[in-house]
Design a protein around this nucleic acid. Structure first.
Lengths: 174, 174
DNA sequence: GCCAGTATGTCAGCATTGTTGACTTATTTT
DNA sequence: AAAATAAGTCAACAATGCTGACATACTGGC
């Protein structure tokens, strides 16, 4: 919708007292809370937190990821990243390799145990997603995927969709 | 699905190398990041954070909420809640009233400016949801609602759905 | 009316994960 | 050789979780 069109819509919405989708706002909160909460339990037994999960997940999905790319995905500072990355490297879950074309770069890859943990976390979350999709009806998946993509900021959406697709390809090749 | 049925499903899944829904796992991360990120910008101009948003939101939606109920919704400790609640009360966004039936209880309600801020935040988030739904096709809403409800932990789902419904009723009455 | 239980508030300390700012090192590009 | 880039590090701080301990006010049962 264009900007003027949005303004007209807004006027109409106010005139008719269209209610905000409070049910969805709240369900997003509760769904996310439980979605990440279950993984947190697994992580806690390794002494890790959510930040470690995010790093491990994307390194597993995008092997050879550089620090700069990871910072861009997570939108945190390198100081924040370094803390959790150090934990993962010292724990033997992630390894750094020096870039070939550019030796300044650190290419991140999971070790065997890093991959195992990443997959275990993905499995837990997958099961919750699968059961939610099953309850909602299997044709729900396309709708949900499109909805979630639409929730991503417009400026970032193309990039995010490209990353998600890149992850799929890598995943299929391993 | 029953537990033995899930085990059989798992065996089949492994045998056929069924991929986890990595696209959805990642889209949930990116969608949530941007969904709350936009509200964070508004909150920052008031000197508030996400924790304040959650408290303000539920007090606005469920006027007369008690501390105990709020703790149950947010799943945090009373010490954590008290810090942000104090900020909101001192800032004049939330008021406490003594319970009538039970004078130990503190019934929480938003002030005029608290209501205004809560509605402003809800408006920002509503617009993102509305545009995501519009892009995905309007019939998506039912599917997304069911999916999100299915993502909530089973033990909590009935309670969550009741809360969401209660909020709607109150909202219509104001 | 007393007493156990409940609802709330508060102090102190700590962990995780985010931030800014400043600076270093290694490497590539110009 | 100089400038730009990729990454690492130190120090300090903020937001938001946590545990444990204890205080206050009120209710409900006996």
């Amino acid at each position: 919708m264009s900007a003027p069109a949005l303004q007209r819509f807004d006027t109409v919405r106010q005139a008719f007292h269209v209610e905000a989708p409070y049910d969805l706002i709240e369900l997003i909160f509760f769904a996310y809370r439980d979605f990440v909460g279950e993984a947190d339990l697994v992580l806690a037994s390794y002494g890790f937190g959510r930040a470690h999960h995010r790093v491990l997940h994307f390194v597993d999905r995008l092997p050879g990821l550089t620090i700069a790319e990871l910072l861009d995905i997570l939108r945190i500072t390198k100081q924040s990243l370094n803390r959790v990355l150090r934990d993962l490297i010292e724990g033997g879950f992630i390894e750094q390799r020096t870039g070939v074309a550019d030796r300044r770069r650190r290419l991140l890859v999971t070790t065997r145990s890093g991959e195992a943990l990443a997959r275990e976390l993905a499995r837990v979350q997958s099961e919750r997603i699968a059961s939610a999709l099953a309850e909602a009806g299997e044709d729900t998946r396309v709708a949900v995927t499109r909805f979630l993509a639409g929730m991503v900021g417009e400026g970032d959406r193309a990039h995010v969709l490209e990353l998600v697709a890149r992850g799929r390809v890598n995943g299929a090749h391993r």
